[in-house]
Design a protein around this nucleic acid. Structure first.
Lengths: 205, 205
DNA sequence: TGTACATCAGTGAACGCGCGTTCACTGATGTAC
DNA sequence: TGTACATCAGTGAACGCGCGTTCACTGATGTAC
C-alpha cells in the first residue's frame, strides 16, 4: 500500500485535468479511480463525498497559484528597481510562463467552477470567492506602490485595476479554449502590460 | 396545442438559464420539460438529442449577441463623429447596458461551453469557435478604422486588441460570478475603454 | 363544400445504464507496555 | 523483544435513483382534389 498522501494527490491531479476539460459534473468518480488505479471505495476513504473533492480541488488550486505568483513577482522585484518596472517585468514573466506551457495553459478551476456554481455547496463557492479576493489584494498592493510613485494618466479605481489582472487571465483562457489557440492568453497578458505602461509611465513613447 | 416555434423558444430560454447557472451536464431534460410544461417526448420532438440542444443554444446566442452589438455600435457611430469617439461611446453604452441588467448579466454560454467542451460534438465546438472569430472580425474592423486616423502610442496587434474586447467581457463575467458582485463586468469594460483611450487619443490628459 | 390524407406538435410508458454512496470487511504499518 | 491493540489505506459487493433515449401512438390543423 502506498502512503495515503500520494494517492490523494494522484486523485486530485487526475480529477483536475478531467474537470478542466469537461466540467465537474461530467467527471465521474469511476473514471478518476480507474486512472488512479484504486477502487471507488478507496476514493471515499479520501473524500467524504464529491463535493469534498471540489472543495479540495479549489483549495489546492489557490495554494499552488499563490505560490507561483509569489515566486514570479519576487523575481520581478529583484530584476526591476521600482514598483512600476517590477510590475511590467512580472507581467512579461507571466506571459512567458503561460506561453511556454506545453500544450497550453490547462485552465483555471476557479473559472470552471464559476460556470457550474449551483452544483456546489456554499463552502465551495465561498472558497472560490476567497481566491479571487486574494488575487485582488495581491495586485492592489502592487498598484498602490506604483501609484505612490507615478501619477496616473487616467483616473481609475485600483481595486478594479487589480481585478483586471485576474480578469485578463480568465478571459484570455476562455478565448484561447474556444479558438483552440494556446497563445492567446499570454498575448492578452501582454496587452494588459501595455495598458499598465500607458497608464503610469511618465513619458509615453 | 401551441405553435411549435413558441415551445422551442421556451425550451431554449429555460435551458439557457439553467446551463448558465449550473452547467450543461447538470441541466437535465427532465427539469427543462417540467418548467416548459411539456413531456420529455415533447422535448425530443424539437431536438434530436441533448447535443442538438447545445448546438441550438450556442447558435441562438451568437445571433442574439450579434444583433445586440450591431444595434449598440450603430447607435455609437451616430453619436460620435469619428471612429475613436464611436468606439469609446460604444464601450460606454455597453458598460451601461450590462450595469442596468436586473440581477446582473446572466453570463455567456460560449464561456460556459469553453470549460465543458469535451462534452460536446465537434460541431458544437466549431460553432463556439465561430462565435469568437466573429467578435474578433467585428472589433478588428473598428480598430482598423481608428488606426487609420490615429497613430497608436504603443505598438499592439489589432487582432489581439479585438480579442481583448471579448476577453474583458468573459473575464469580467467570471470575476463577477465568483465574487457575486454584478457590477464588476461593466467596470472592466470601462477599464478597457480607458486603455483604448490612452492607446489612441492624440493628446493624453 | 366535403372528404381523404399528410403533417405538426406533441403524449405515455418503458428501457437499460451509469452514477454517487454505503457498508462490512481486511491486510499492512505504527504504538504502548 | 514480544504481544495486543489501534490506525491507515484501502477492497468488493450491493443499492437505488435519475438520466437520456426509444417507440408506438394521437388529436388538431393544413392541403389537394
Amino acid at each position: 500500500m502506498a502512503r495515503g498522501g500520494e494517492t490523494r494527490r494522484k486523485i486530485l491531479d487526475i480529477a483536475q485535468a478531467a474537470v478542466l476539460s469537461k466540467g465537474f459534473d461530467a467527471t465521474s468518480i469511476e473514471e478518476i479511480v480507474t486512472n488512479a488505479e484504486i477502487t471507488k471505495s478507496g476514493f471515499f476513504y479520501h473524500f467524504r463525498d464529491k463535493n469534498a473533492l471540489a472543495h479540495a480541488l479549489i483549495e489546492r488550486h489557490i495554494k499552488v497559484e499563490d505560490e507561483l505568483f509569489d515566486d514570479l513577482f519576487d523575481r520581478a522585484r529583484e530584476l526591476g528597481d521600482d514598483p512600476l518596472q517590477a510590475m511590467l517585468i512580472g507581467l512579461k514573466l507571466l506571459a512567458k510562463l503561460i506561453e511556454d506551457m506545453p500544450g497550453g495553459h490547462p485552465g483555471c478551476i476557479v473559472a470552471s467552477a464559476a460556470y457550474q456554481d449551483r452544483l456546489f455547496d456554499r463552502d465551495v463557492r465561498e472558497a472560490n470567492s476567497r481566491a479571487v479576493l486574494g488575487w485582488r489584494r495581491r495586485f492592489r498592493a502592487m498598484f498602490d506602490d506604483i501609484a505612490n510613485v507615478y501619477p496616473m494618466h487616467d483616473s481609475v479605481d485600483l481595486d478594479q485595476l487589480a481585478d483586471m489582472v485576474s480578469g485578463t487571465l480568465e478571459g484570455g483562457l476562455i478565448i484561447s479554449r474556444a479558438l483552440e489557440e494556446p497563445s492567446i492568453t499570454s498575448q492578452q497578458v501582454m496587452l494588459l502590460r501595455s495598458y499598465v505602461k500607458l497608464l503610469f509611465s511618465p513619458k509615453v513613447q
